[in-house]
Design a protein around this nucleic acid. Structure first.
Lengths: 152, 152
DNA sequence: TATTGTTATACTCTATAACTATA
DNA sequence: TATAGTTATAGAGTATAACAATA
């Protein structure tokens, strides 16, 4: 295997670094993700929030932030934005008046489904570079690494 | 396959999104990368610069930024920092007085080798979650995706 | 005209700490 | 005393635009 790219740069020390390769690959998929989301006026981070609320209606902001591994302080502006777009709504919790229960509006559900479809389609463009079964294998190994970290 | 994690959150819409999984996995490896680098007083970004200069002595700042796909304006502070640590030196180019040729000092070479070893060792902790040959396969598929994007 | 290094600047993402109102 | 949401703030990372020196 060559360690040089088409510009004659030698990448030996980064060639077998998963940290480096994962970052580069993630940037590729982020572009796809970003493009699909931008068409609908949001960002990949906001999409992930919608995706969680879609299948878990009624969660609190803290529960969503914990599900996505981001700080709860980051949720405020995010939910403000999604509420201003009328795709998410905060409802006062009955049992705990400190927190909100988050729900998608009807518009928000259709919005999220459309977005999901666009993001999926965008990712499909790269499926042509994978052999039969490789996509599933890739998802599986990534899951194993993510879970491995949690256990540490 | 369950779409819920141990907290009962349903991740259906993110479960098969490579963009999401790659980001989470990249964060895991970034932590490892970051820890190894922090022990030596630098960051993963600075390590990648050292790794390029190590095997490509004499490159200009622009060439390094292009090799790593970052803007050349970001190189200024980075090389300033590495020069202040006495691991990199800027030498005036003979043929083009606009640019510098970048070299590692003797100290910088040993520093980079030590760093490379620490980063590699850090990554090895996750090899136990992969079967025989999977690491190579993973690197290969990531390369295919990165190259696919370039060709677009 | 184009390019190299530089500076100033701005924007995103994210984390921390402190506050308030509830529990 | 602990937790949910909020606010202010700060840091890292990165990109853009403009400038001087040089090609």
């Amino acid at each position: 295997m060559s360690t040089e790219d088409q510009n004659g740069i030698n990448y030996s020390m980064l060639q077998s670094r998963l940290g480096y390769k994962l970052r580069r690959t993630q940037l590729v998929y982020f572009d796809v993700f970003f493009e699909a989301c931008a068409q609908e006026g949001i960002t990949p981070g906001l999409f992930s929030i919608l995706a969680i609320i879609y299948h878990n209606p009624g969660l609190t902001q803290s529960a969503v932030s914990s599900a996505l591994d981001v700080d709860r302080s980051a949720m405020v502006a995010a939910i403000d934005k999604l509420e201003s777009m009328e795709v998410v709504e905060r409802r006062k919790s009955k049992n705990d008046r400190r927190s909100y229960a988050l729900y998608l509006t009807e518009k928000g559900k259709a919005f999220t489904e459309r977005l999901d479809h666009k993001v999926s389609s965008g990712e499909e463009a790269f499926d042509t570079f994978m052999k039969e079964g490789e996509r599933e294998w890739l998802l599986d190994i990534l899951d194993r690494i993510i879970e491995a970290r949690k256990g540490q």
